[in-house]
Write a protein that binds this DNA or RNA. Sequence first.
RNA 1: GGGCGACUAGCUCAGUGGGAGAGCGCUACCUUGACACGGUAGAGGUCGCAGGUUCAAUCCCUGCGUCGCCCACCA
Length: 846
Amino acid sequence: MSETTPKVPERPSLDGLDAAWSAVWERQGTYRFDAPGDRAAVFSIDTPPPTVSGSLHVGHVFSYTHTDIVARFQRMLGKHVFYPMGWDDNGLPTERRVQNYFGVRCDPSLPYDPDFAAPEPMARKGDRPILNLSRRNFVELCTTLTESDEKAFEALWRRLGLSVDWSMTYTTIGSTAQRVSQRAFLRLVRSGNAYQAEAPTLWDVGFRTAVAQAELEDREHAGAWHRIAFHAGDRPIHIETTRPELLPACVALIAHPDDERYQDLFGTTVTSPVFGVSVPVLPHPAAERERGAGIAMCCTFGDLTDVQWWRELHLPARTVIGRDGRILAEPPDGLDDQEGRKAYAELAGATVRTARERVVAMLRASGDLDGEPRTVVRPVKFYEKGDTPLEIVSSRQWFIRSVEHQDAMLRRGAELQWHPAYMKARYDDWVRGLNGDWLVSRQRFYGVPFPIWYPLDAAGDPDYDNPILAVEDTLPIDPSSDTPPGYSADQRDQPGGFTGDPDVMDTWATSSMTPEIVCGWDSDPERFAQTYPMDLRPQAHDIIRTWLFATVLRAELETHSLPWRHAALSGWILDPDRKKMSKSKDNVVTPMGLLEQFSSDAMRYWAASGRPGTDTAFDQGQMKVGRRLATKLLNASKFVLTIGAPADDADVTEPIDRAMLAALDDVVVQATSALHEFEYTTALERTERFFWSFCDDYLELVKQRAYGVTDEPPSPEASSARLALRTALSVLQRLLAPFQPYSTEEAWSWWHDDSVHTSEWPTPAGIVADSSALDVAGTVIGAIRKAKSDAKLSMRAEVATVRVYGTEADLAAVDATRTDLTAAGNVRTFEPHPTTEPLRIEVELA
RNA sequence: GGGCGACUAGCUCAGUGGGAGAGCGCUACCUUGACACGGUAGAGGUCGCAGGUUCAAUCCCUGCGUCGCCCACCA
């Protein structure tokens, strides 16, 4: 670091610092990554690319600050910090936002309109008819909107002071991400780790796409138990169901093998009411005797147990619900009864809800509804971004093998260093509970397409068993517009020609490749060697089962290693009432508004108060405190720097000065070790505590001595104080720099040419000193202050006598700091009284 | 049903096998040559409950309670 003659403003202020210093950092490339040629000298961070579907909220400010604190610490340790930013613009959230924002829908059957111009945003939902767009026009619109969102995101991050290298920014829809994602996928296909299958899959009828196990969530949903009679000859067999509309999809009744009530029925058939379909009664151990009537209606498909029975008992499929969530026009095979077909015709085209009402009416009319439906609220599976309950439909989908890698995943989880450590349990739970391979295809538009085509046979049907894989050199490709090798463009969708895979990949299938994308896995071997495996994955704990798991899986499959050494999980932001921060509230309190109101340093201070993994309350009080700390640092710096320089040959000689520096050494050790463990909260707390006592006690005590009688030349005593003050200030500015980059940079700039953020992290100076000078002086000045406060006097009030009762050591400490105490307390005389008792002070005011 | 975490002052949270802490808020006071976006002092807690281990437990062990979350089940 290069010290200069201090230039301190008349009245330091936080106002304007954010804009001024962000511009300087950008201009000077302060956070630019330069490859050192040595992996050990790099600290690489796998930043979470925030979803671009609206705006960032205070929760983002919270967790991204945590990462930045670590990045700044590592940079000051001398590491070359590899810290890119990404935007997750690919995927459903963007599509939904574009649909709602512009009032449009994608219709892939429409032709591309090259002259299409983006419509004005809708003022209110539904204020004009929905506009249908071709896939390509729709994708272009998605790109337009995300680009403007990303600009706003970057502006916020710069304002917050994230020390990312903005020259390395990536997007998950960008060509690099597409290429990496497609290349990795092709390799998985070749190695057999990706495959396609026609299978029952969880399906969101709102978005009309398959979804993965990881994207499910349970929600409390109101329904009703219906007790319905099947018929074994004249004998009614009652089942209970919450989904009577699936009655025409029933393929069997199932009871537990040991259930005495149904022994005589096993192997026989019964007839469904209304629809008159004959179905077998079968035993299966997954049937629970205690639940409902103890005998279940197995349908195509009501839930995952139905799928299990269908599979294990080799039952037929009777699909009645279409991909749009409506009852199919044609009745399923096996529904042959005339009356039954008539009944079905009344359901065709109806929504699930309407169909349910109609089936119940039919059952009531036929006398097969026993009693009235009993309402019940029970958990139902939803797609986490959807708003209708999931259905299960059979469809052709791509999967990535994960079940067979379970053990390897558990081993990787154990290798990874978790912060906090207990978060590993969530990962283990998830891996152990995997019940199927990862479904990665989505029947959507704005995403990375599968780099795959299928030959069409003479009848024009795709040959799914012999997919045509794209050539890796040509990636990224879009099979809906690019032509596969060996074919010409006019053979598209023609018998004997080819067709492109219509689907796109799940967002996680791309974002699980972020380490490979940013480190140059397939494009920059040199960078890859220097940055991968990465050092840190910071992320929120709610996406352990998705992002974290998927990234570990992909790294295992591609590079047979962990993608990073450490995972740091941050918590959520809660409302002051401890509920998860609500959207409505968040719109009122925007992050940019808060940054403007409190300053970036203040917001960062609040963020730093949330420990890793811990949910934290949104607390403007903490922001005020952070602002106070930043202001205090400016003022204390001004004071120390304007009080005058120590003599050239100055030394820290006074016991109290040495004691202060020794205590600071201790703080440096503690803060450093805490930051190494990602315990930034502890580091800040230790530093801050020292800083306030430095200002309120030490500084007040040595003030008068530091001023000195004359400035030229300063006395050895004055020099000792001045040198100690400057030494401590330098250390404190650096200790606080990761937390409060703006105020520390400002104050540092008053006496240095370089940036505090590229200066060296402080190390202990190795000062050995008896702490009693500082401790005893603190006790004495405390007693003096209390006496004055009790007497409701100014702190400047004169003290006649201070009587000190204490051991020889205590009295010696008082003697050593007598000059400082006399000046700071405005004391006339000290009277030492040797005792063996603990230190006691009597103050006699003048 | 299984698991993880939390429970300490009115609020937000540190903390340690031996003295119960910080900040905010509150009360009173102080404009002292960095700072009123400041300073000084004060009031305020049976450390969720019950057992156990220990010379000693807020801390370790067991059980329970409340809250939050994760996973599973959901005919």
